[in-house]
Amino acid sequence: MLAHAQKLVYTLKELMPTSYQKDNLEAMLGLFLEAQGQHEPEHCQTKSPSALSRFLNINPWSTRDMIRTVRNHVVETVLKVFSECGKGRKPFLQVIIDLTTLEKRGKFKDFEDLISVYNGKRGLHLVVVYLVVANWRIPWSFRVWRGKGTLSPAQLGLKLVRRLPKSLTEHFQVMILADTAFGSVEFLHGIRKLKYHAITGVAINRKLIDGRVLRHLRKARRLGCFPRQTLHKQGQQVRLVGLKLTVTVCWY
């Protein structure tokens, strides 16, 4: 793993247009790779906070080239791991989709169209995709949810899943892992159409086709208030209103 990381760091440094920016990038990466929880610029021992701020906000360098280089390196490394697995059943590629909020207070003129309120929190709401292979969890892509009247977090998540490179997904069994924010009918049908597996959270007030809601399944099991043949247990399949497929329900 160390050899892969060193190769990537050297490649990223070569993307910087000046030696000054190469030094700044090296200083920034050093803060994160120390993994001491002190990655803010003021903790850097080799560069001033103002120098790193200029590097991140003012100095011209290609963000797209950086992202493209990192992604190519990730795919190359993951496929190498796949090739070492040998023949047999395809290993799983877990794709975690998460909605993360970076809370913001005050006024940010440059971010006016990006900052919104979601679940009582004001800030940048990011739909983030992580790839999990073996013991590696790799940030892959993200989109900003821009508020009501725009694409929902579930729609953004589905878009990101559709854009996963085929060079990666065709070598693995893809398992989508997401919370309740991504349990919509459109999202589940979209994942099914891609022939991927999915484990998502579902609200307890989600309706079944027999008129009950998911909350009743647990109560029926605990209280015995339904005939034996209608009792539901962990891992049993049910039909939800609006879904064209049968799902397996579990809870904890």
Rank of each mutant, 00 (worst) to 15 (best):
D210T: 05
S62K: 08
Q94V: 11
L188G: 07
F92N: 13
D65S: 05
P49S: 01
S19E: 15
R221H: 12
L31P: 02
G147E: 06
K13H: 10
Q94S: 07
I115R: 02
T18Q: 11
L214D: 00
R137H: 08
G224C: 02
G235Q: 14
N119A: 09
N135P: 02
K233T: 13
R162E: 15
K193D: 13
H216R: 00
V74C: 10
E103R: 09
G157H: 15
L156E: 08
K109C: 01
S167K: 12
K87R: 09
R163W: 09
Y118R: 02
G157L: 13
D65T: 02
L156Q: 12
W61H: 14
L8F: 06
I209S: 07
L188Q: 11
A198Y: 13
R68C: 09
K193L: 09
V161Q: 04
A220F: 02
H197S: 15
K7V: 10
F187P: 14
V247T: 04
F82R: 15
F182H: 14
E112G: 00
D23Q: 14
Y20T: 15
E170I: 08
L8N: 07
I138F: 06
K80I: 02
P165H: 05
Y20A: 15
L223H: 01
F108S: 10
D210M: 03
M1G: 14
V132H: 04
T248N: 09
V213E: 00
E42Q: 06
F172V: 10
V133Y: 06
R143H: 12
W136A: 15
T18K: 15
D179W: 12
R206E: 10
K233M: 08
L79M: 06
K166D: 04
H197T: 12
H43Y: 00
Q45D: 04
R64Q: 08
L102M: 10
L25P: 09
G211C: 03
H232D: 04
A178F: 12
C250M: 12
K87H: 07
S116R: 07
K47Q: 02
E103Q: 11
H43N: 00
F142Q: 13
L160C: 13
V213S: 00
N24S: 15
F172S: 09
K104D: 00
S167L: 08
F92K: 15
G235Y: 11
S53Y: 05
S184A: 12
T100P: 00
Q236H: 15
V238Y: 05
G30W: 09
G242A: 05
I67L: 11
K166W: 09
K80G: 11
V128P: 05
T18N: 12
G211M: 05
G123L: 03
H73V: 04
T246E: 13
E26M: 07
S152R: 11
G120R: 08
R212Y: 00
A27P: 01
H4R: 11
L164T: 03
I138S: 03
L240Y: 04
K7M: 09
A181N: 10
A27T: 06
V127N: 06
A181W: 14
R64K: 06
L223C: 02
A203T: 13
A220E: 14
G30I: 09
